Amino acid sequence: MERIVDISTDGQHLSAYRGFLVVNKDREEIGRIPLDDVAAVIVHAHGITWSTNLVVALAERGALMVLCGSNHAPVAVCMPLDGHHGQNARMRTQWDASKPLAKQLWREVVVSKIRWQAAALEARGVSADAFDMLVRRVRSGDPDNVEAQAARRYWPLLMGQDFRRDRAAGGVNGLLNYGYTILRSLLARSVVAAGLHPSIGIHHANRGNAFALADDLIEPFRPLVDTMAVQLTARGCREVTPEAKRAFAGLIAVDLPGENGTTTVSGAAIRLAQSLSHCFDTGKISDIVLPRPPSPIELAGLETLIA
């Protein structure tokens, strides 16, 4: 399984040497990892330096370098220009996709997200019957913004009545930001590998968002991070500690139910991006393969990732 490498100690230097990502501090090597094993490098710390050779080596392997702000949210991403062998043709079909198709795709994404939210609540022993009703109300393009209606119900039930989702805040919100950064990197990588352009979304269309498509496709996976954040806070962890980072990084290898048996979160992300590319090619909404939510028991079992 590919790895997420987190750089969170100040004053380190990153370089490439004979097929390895090498980490040095005060001119002494403190760690190395095979470059072929790296899915993404996430940089949080101050005073980090790296060599151009390393960034090139990561890009050649399709790996991302993600730079984060103090709130653990990504502010910049270095990604490869070369992707899938049919990249040009696929981007053309992506750009030319009809509005009705994009709206139908967004409906499927929202429905999937709400079902995942229901599974996350059930894993906590909370009734999610209302979410089944919300799923039935989602129309093409979600003009009634059922996604937001579900969120208003979801967060108080999952985190408590006093919780407010604030991307700029610390504490539990910082945990969520960090976990979402892991998944955003995974989805961006999957999108590029499928020959699609991450800035051309099916719903998100902010001019300043270079990863609109990744932000569209991450939506069903978010409750994985939410569940892990709940489990960490239950253990008294309310900041992005090394323990929390290891737990969130482990999410990409979590087993999920798939079309032909068990897959992983990483595998489901790749399959989702590839199937979306087929949707753009064929114009058929039926080609999309969204991740299936795990059972409440499987979600509760994420706690085993916490060291």
Rank of each mutant, 00 (worst) to 15 (best):
V191C: 02
D37V: 02
A234S: 11
A214T: 02
V146G: 02
P294G: 13
D216P: 06
W50Y: 14
P296M: 09
S127Q: 13
H203Q: 11
A102G: 00
I182S: 09
W155M: 08
F221E: 02
I306R: 09
D216S: 13
S286V: 11
G83A: 13
L213W: 03
V55R: 12
W155Y: 15
Q12N: 04
N88I: 15
I288D: 02
M79Q: 13
A59C: 14
S185D: 09
I285Q: 10
G11L: 01
D36E: 14
R90F: 15
L58H: 04
T241L: 10
L175F: 10
F221L: 15
W155C: 01
L14D: 01
I202H: 00
R189A: 01
Q87R: 13
L35M: 05
A194E: 08
P242S: 05
T52V: 15
R115F: 02
S275T: 09
F163T: 08
L81T: 08
T233F: 05
R292C: 00
T9C: 08
M133V: 12
C237Q: 13
G301N: 15
P291K: 03
V75D: 12
D26L: 05
R189N: 05
G261H: 07
E2Y: 10
E108S: 15
P291T: 11
A97I: 07
N145A: 05
D255Q: 15
F20H: 11
D129N: 10
P34D: 07
T304C: 05
V77A: 04
V75Y: 14
E60Q: 13
F163H: 11
P220V: 13
N173L: 05
L305F: 10
A188H: 08
P296A: 11
A97E: 04
L67T: 13
A16I: 08
G267R: 02
V23C: 12
V55W: 02
T282R: 14
L105Q: 06
A76Q: 09
G125K: 09
G83S: 12
E108W: 03
T304S: 14
A16K: 04
I4A: 04
T52F: 11
S277K: 07
A119T: 05
R164F: 00
A212D: 07
N173A: 09
L58Y: 08
A307R: 14
P100G: 02
R136C: 01
P257Y: 03
L251W: 07
R292S: 04
S15P: 01
Q104I: 00
G141H: 06
E243W: 08
F248H: 11
G125T: 06
W106Y: 06
I218C: 09
D26Q: 10
S70N: 05
P242V: 10
G258Q: 05
L176F: 06
V55L: 15
P223D: 08
R153Y: 06
K25G: 06
H85I: 15
L35E: 01
V289G: 00
D6H: 11
Q104E: 12
S15A: 13
A269S: 07
S8P: 00
G250I: 12
V109D: 04
S277W: 10
Q87N: 04
N71P: 01
D142Y: 04
A307Y: 08
A169H: 01
P143S: 09
R136A: 14
A229I: 07
S127L: 07
K284I: 02
G47Q: 14
S277M: 11
L305C: 09
L305H: 09
G174Y: 04
I7Q: 02
V138E: 04
L81E: 07
C68V: 10
A249T: 06
A210I: 03
I285S: 13
D166H: 11
S295C: 06
T181F: 11
